[in-house]
Amino acid sequence: MNSIITYREAVRQALREAMEQDERVFLMGEDVGHYGGSYAVSMGFLALFGPQRIIDTPLSESAFTGAGIGAALGGMRPIVEIMTVNFSLLALDQIMNNAATLLHMSGGQFNVPLVIRMATGGGKQLAAQHSHSLEGWYAHIPGLKVLTPATIQDAYNMLGLALRDPDPVLIFENSMLYNTKGVLDPQIQPLMIGKARVQRAGKDLTILTYGISLFKSLEAASALMKEGIDVEVIDLRSLRPLDDETIMKSVAKTHRVLIVDEGWKSGSISAEIMARINEQAFYELDAPMQRVCTVEVPIPYAAHLEQAALPQAEKIIAMAKKIMEKQ
């Protein structure tokens, strides 16, 4: 039955069902138990599932992420929660040097069915050590899968998809999305990992985006429609693997591309997408591709500076118009 729930509730529901359905699944991370999760995703789960399956860890990102890898090798289906992507850098060694490499280094003998969830993104005035969007970095690494659920449906579906995957999957939940509301249909067949979704069909310009920028892009698309610009908005959903097919199909339809990403531009996933379009669909383009990304500063505290640094609907509208001016 369809219901309107929050993003937080969608993740909670997926988590609860996964734990009920498979006793190999457990949740481990900082403040996931007694506190209830730093974003309240696992509130009440300690009482529901007990301390053996809802494990409060010390502030040891490297060790508990590595322990997740080890437990996955041992046949469990661990979900490791890292409070924010910035803290995940303390576990980068384990993610990069073990989770992503073990299958290959062992000649195919040891796969790592691990799920790592973490919050990402700015907008809460948490300044330069809690606000970055580094999911694009992780998309650089062969051996990992990188998911960025934006919708309520995906917040619910992607956890189950990730748990069924035999390899390490990273799920990035933009912290500004937890209170957003939308429709969840638990019966719907989930769109598989690696597939992008056309969230709004249009004919004049393609916006490629993911995470919270999806909603800013949709807002911009509505405004642009009033000015006669019909925008197609694609939710990438997965940054690794990227859905080249859906991207190129849209490029061939609209011939104009704008990428909206809360990551920085330099050496980024937005640059990667541009490169792929250049390689695979250059002659489809009627205008140079453009990007709206986060300004290249560490995210500042002051609200006006932070908002100025992040992608916004107005910037997207302005950039879309600029692209449309090119004949």
Partner: peptide, 25 residues
């Protein structure tokens, strides 16, 4: 035999996790 890790100390967390899975199961 789970390797063969060439990041010094990188194998300790993995061993902790393996032992955790044994305890859980």
């Amino acid at each position: 035999f789970y390797g063969g890790s060439a990041i010094v100390s990188g194998g300790l967390p993995l061993a902790v996790g393996m032992a955790l899975s044994d305890q859980m199961m």
